[in-house]
Design a protein around this nucleic acid. Structure first.
Lengths: 113, 113
DNA sequence: TTGATGCTTAGTCATATTGCTAACTATCAC
DNA sequence: GTGATAGTTAGCAATATGACTAAGCATCAA
């Protein structure tokens, strides 16, 4: 598996959990401390930490510690490979449809003759 | 968890595996039989079947059996919730940036006075 | 310096995931 | 009907995931 594919897998996997998505949505509003992210979810701190680790490994968030407090922030560019992959799939599919349409048109013309 | 969130989790999870993504890419080119999908991956038929089941549960593909042969096809609309979710996150983040910029502009003006 | 706060680590548990092989069923071609 | 083909089911093993509690460490406030 290429590095790109591995990155995509990490990204999609990170996004596949509803708790992690809710954390991302919260962080889209602005940076937050670990405890701030833990409270609304109702999950224990270690559990949230693990989710944050998954998000950080995927590159979707960045975090830094200042004193006792770790602040997390979203990394908007990190979503790009996901969008790009979706676009690529759509392109392949649309090209196929175009060919299909061209064939249908050709068939109609030949029928006309 | 709402149904929508559950659907999103299924979708992202389905997309998180490189073998499943390669199957989708193949199917974007056009429908294919199970064996056609198995051969290029190098995985056993039962393994591929399982991947197909995951994709079908997520709604990303549809399949039908004719005689002995099961034909699988991509369901392009199924990607839409993923795109929508990404767009929503981006919107939240952009709104935040706008507010931030507005604040900065205001601060600059006040400094001018 | 002592206590509260914020995070981290370690260890456990249940379940899910991803691969396999072996055996089975259903269909098609002779 | 016999054999090859296409898919399916069952069951196994290794690893990953997602939750928890309990205990630890570092920092800040008084």
């Amino acid at each position: 598996m290429t590095k790109h594919q591995a990155d995509l897998s990490l990204l999609f996997h990170a996004l596949s959990d509803p708790t992690r998505r809710s954390i991302l949505t919260r962080l889209a509003e602005g940076p937050a401390r670990v405890t701030d992210l833990s409270e609304p979810t109702g999950y224990s701190l270690p559990t949230v930490m693990r989710h944050l680790a998954v998000l950080e490994e995927a590159g979707l968030i960045a975090s830094a510690k200042d004193g006792r407090v770790r602040t997390c922030a979203i990394v908007p560019e990190a979503f790009k490979p996901v969008r790009t992959w979706l676009d690529e799939q759509r392109l392949i599919w649309e090209r196929r449809l175009d060919r299909f349409e061209a064939m249908a048109l050709k068939a109609m013309k030949e029928k006309d003759e």
